[in-house]
Design a protein around this nucleic acid. Sequence first.
DNA 1: GTGTCATGCTCGCTGAGCCTGACACT
Length: 400
Amino acid sequence: MPEGPELHLASRFVSRVCAGVVFSGLVEKSEVSKNSEVPFTCDAYCITATSRGKEVRLTLTPIKEEGEPHGGKACQPMDIVFRFGMSGFFRFTAGSELPKHAHLRFYTNETPRRALSFVDVRRFGSWEPNGDWQTDRGPCVMFEYQTFDKPICEVMLNQKYFNGIGNYLRAEILYRLKISPFMKARTVLHGLLPKKRELLEVKPEQGQCQPLQDSEMSLSKKIKMKMESPDILDLCHSVPMEVINMGGKGYDPEKPDDYSTFQAWLQCYYVPGMKSLRDHNGRTIWFQGDPGPLAPKVSKSPKAKRKGKKQGEDKTDKQQGVKGEPPAKGIKKEKEGAQNKRVKSHSESKKTKENKRKGSRSSEGRKQKSKLEREEDAPGTAVPRSQHQRSMQTKSEKDS
DNA sequence: GTGTCATGCTCGCTGAGCCTGACACT
């Protein structure tokens, strides 16, 4: 059941049923659950919920009673972040009729009392008292969709999407693609979608569109096309590989201070004549040409202020924006930051490997699905056919 | 009664294991 939409609906359910309801006392955990106790107790509190991706956050907020003495033992609000595993959900029932597998219970202060329960049949779900959204999760596909409206140069430094790309690589890649650094990431990535004519081939004799089979385009033709017009993903692979192939003459030269090979290879980053701007995260992006529609408003650099003009304002100036310092100096300056970046990349590579494994596992799972299931699984279908059939059968059996 | 499968995630390794319930099959 629980994917993003289900978790969001669960948060709405909690907020709806708990609106105006006062909860009281301890938060009760089932004995069998291995999750941690929730160290929260309060005479009167309310519950609200929000969601982000596959997480739901319950906020327990104490209600201040009138006449409560100041300086008394006041309860503190608490956030509890839930992950639903394979079978988690919330139910609001009478306290005497707790659902089976209700592993965390919040009781109302009414008589008879009612209970909001976190129900989890398989116990793969978890909760984290005083928790927050997991930091290694990407943006919520439902409510942080606008993340992809950020400039491509900023998205490229997000290691969740481009694990391994740093400041010099993004500059080189965008330069080679002739892409404005402040173009919307969505626009650039949308360009990766196959064009209609590549996806569909009209067979006049049938009057139908058929998917173009891989085999219908020869491998050599594909390679030729790729070499002629590589896309951003191609370059995110090939450009770093070029650096690797420099051996000991790349960014971290084996000979101290011998940046000559690397400098000769750079086409944009710190190259005299190229422009540079600070992106919205304060990182300097090097580029050529128009910065793009989302470029930040340029504040006057001290030099420009003295000259009385904004960066990039003077169209006659071929070097719009901040001109680069001599390459070697700039490279050395960047090295510290790059080293930090490498440490971060290392810690994140673990996650990437996991994701790859998951991907391969899920594809295995798909292979195991029957042909019927594959054909009838519609995008967004919450219940797989096999399980859906089972539950429907169960229901009909019960009904009968 | 047994085996398999299910929408997630972690550990520590490239799959196994955590869990329960429903269903198919013998």
